[in-house]
Design a protein around this nucleic acid. Structure first.
Lengths: 331, 331
DNA sequence: GCGGCAGCCACAATCGATTGCGGTCGAGCA
DNA sequence: TGCTCGACCGCAATCGATTGTGGCTGCCGC
């Protein structure tokens, strides 16, 4: 406020004049003087000083494993838009899939007085998140969640998505459907695979050795999974991959051993990353409203921060949609 | 330091004990007591308070136009890794391609006491950046630069890239090569198009109505450019697009009027976004070391911040590489 | 035995904004 | 005229860390 002392008033008065909710305690004439002085000096309040006094920094942190994975940019964008519209600043941290560096980053963010976290890196057992939940730091999980669901979570209707895939393939006449599952230390891996099991049972299709868990959500892991599938000799005419990258890796691997999609087998992905529609054949996949997820997570966080109390909703699952393209065909 | 007063010493002493460079002024015994007390309490220094006193926040801001454009995530990642290794925090802001919101975001960042900026949204005439340059805020431009080059810039050898494309096409026998240029309010648009002109002249190829400027770097603008090219009746057998998205849009548009690539024409892109190698036909394009660009920009910024003086290098251009794939063929 | 020096630490100011409390002044009323 | 009340504003503490200055203690040398 040193600057606005240019108006010839006490910093306390200037502070009140500039603060809409305390402006009533200052005469309109003084308010005018202060506002004009502030404009003249191009005054920007020092958020650090304010944060120090009020312990509110209007900063929210978004923690993601790898920004170069096309899954995350839409989430980031959705969150950014909501947050900046609410006057919040987004700090992004990319943990590089490394729990240790995640720990460090989150500690650093807290030292910076961040008001809350949106976390997209949750593992199924995640002690770090348990700690955050325990000490009441406003934290919202997005895309993945932890086993204990004591933190609000914004995700997608994974179960629906997988069922749509299985039904679609079954309707096309496929019976030997296998699932390239995601890692079991992620909620998406677990839930999509259990949804696969349920959907297959519903259709009375064979489940024996129909699920292969992949080590990570990457093309390399998808290729490795497909290689294991081939090596096992297990007959299959269709694959439900737990996400798009696994599907891509599997297709590449199978192409290497002469299997063409959709001539020799069908495959579905999950997430509908950008460019999936540009591939040849274009990938049949489940579209997830990623930007909405980010935006909704941000809104949930803002609600929590604003209420000073507990979060409002504990779990929100956004609807998904099956996008049928070229990688699925009748059997 | 209230917390470390648990050690029974004055906060000033604790501060010095915890500060490696001032530790000499405190007896080893006291240092040990303070360090132990800090560990016991799980002390994390309050960066706000520190920043308030020292006017150094160890935060750097990265300003990008649209995180969902695959061009930017690698840059973000490269910068993030360098910054967090140096103990800095990255705050990301997505301006949504809107200069007004960019102004607001940057003002907000400065209020937060950010130590410096990395900016990927530079326009050719950019008053906002002129202001930043004028008042000495550490700022590094990445990918694009402004007309006045008073700010350090980290980019790619665009000239080389375009020349490689033209030479490659000319070597394949193409003579009627046209350029889908980027917007002229970006440095990349201007420089790639002037490089195109130079390369064509070098090869003694016809330049008449060979350059079509696109309104933005998007698929839609690329499609519009291709439509204009068709409508003009200008003969062509090859296109040098100013970036991958323009190439994609053009290919889609031309496919709509029956022209197949590479049967009927060849085309090259620029940047080598992820998934460009997965298309059919896979895009021949210029690979730009995006992550390196981000990392180098971050290092340049850190150098500036650390030196308290002026930036070291004013312009760095990283080498590019032509990746020949399926969209170019002999004529 | 006393002056001086150095090592170690405490005091207090500072960064910029917020906020409870108290003081001043003018108006209204008896 | 004197008292009260309320509007308005200033004082000073506070948030947590940093840092220049000064004071205390103990040891050394003369």
């Amino acid at each position: 406020m040193e600057v606005a002392r240019e108006a010839g008033v006490h910093p306390a008065t200037a502070s009140r004049a500039l603060n809409p909710s305390a402006r009533g305690e200052v005469s309109p004439r003084t308010v005018r003087r202060v506002v004009q002085a502030a404009e003249r000096l191009g005054y920007v309040p020092n958020t650090l000083a304010r944060g120090l006094r009020t312990s509110r920094s209007f900063v929210a942190a978004l923690v993601i494993p790898d920004i170069t994975n096309s899954l995350f940019p839409p989430i980031v964008r959705g969150a950014e838009q909501v947050l900046s519209a609410a006057g919040f600043t987004l700090v992004l941290t990319d943990t590089n899939n490394d729990p240790d560096s995640e720990r460090g980053q989150i500690a650093s963010m807290r030292a910076h007085g961040v008001d809350g976290f949106i976390i997209a890196t949750a593992r199924w057992q995640d002690s770090l998140l348990d700690e955050l939940a325990a000490d009441g730091t406003p934290t919202v999980l997005v895309n993945r969640r932890t086993a204990k669901s004591d933190l609000p979570f914004v995700g997608a209707e994974d179960q629906d998505g997988v069922r749509l895939c299985v039904d679609h393939l079954a309707d096309l006449g496929h019976r030997n459907i296998v699932h390239l599952a995601g890692p079991s230390d992620t909620s998406t891996g677990r839930e999509r695979s259990s949804a696969f099991r349920a959907a297959m049972r519903m259709r009375q299709l064979p489940l024996r050795s129909a699920i292969l868990e992949c080590a990570s959500y990457s093309e390399a892991a998808g290729a490795a999974g497909a290689a294991r599938l081939r090596a096992s000799g297990r007959p299959f005419s269709a694959i439900v991959a737990a996400n798009d990258l696994l599907a891509l890796g599997a297709m590449e691997q199978l192409a290497g051993s002469g299997l063409q999609c959709p001539r020799d087998y069908s495959i579905t992905g999950f997430n509908d990353l950008s460019f999936m529609s540009k591939l040849t054949p274009a990938l049949t996949t489940v579209r997830v409203p990623l930007a909405e997820m980010g935006a909704h997570a941000a809104r949930t966080l803002l609600g929590w921060i604003g209420s000073d109390g507990n979060p409002t909703s504990l779990r929100v699952l956004l609807p998904v949609e099956l996008i049928i393209r070229g990688t699925t065909s009748p059997h």
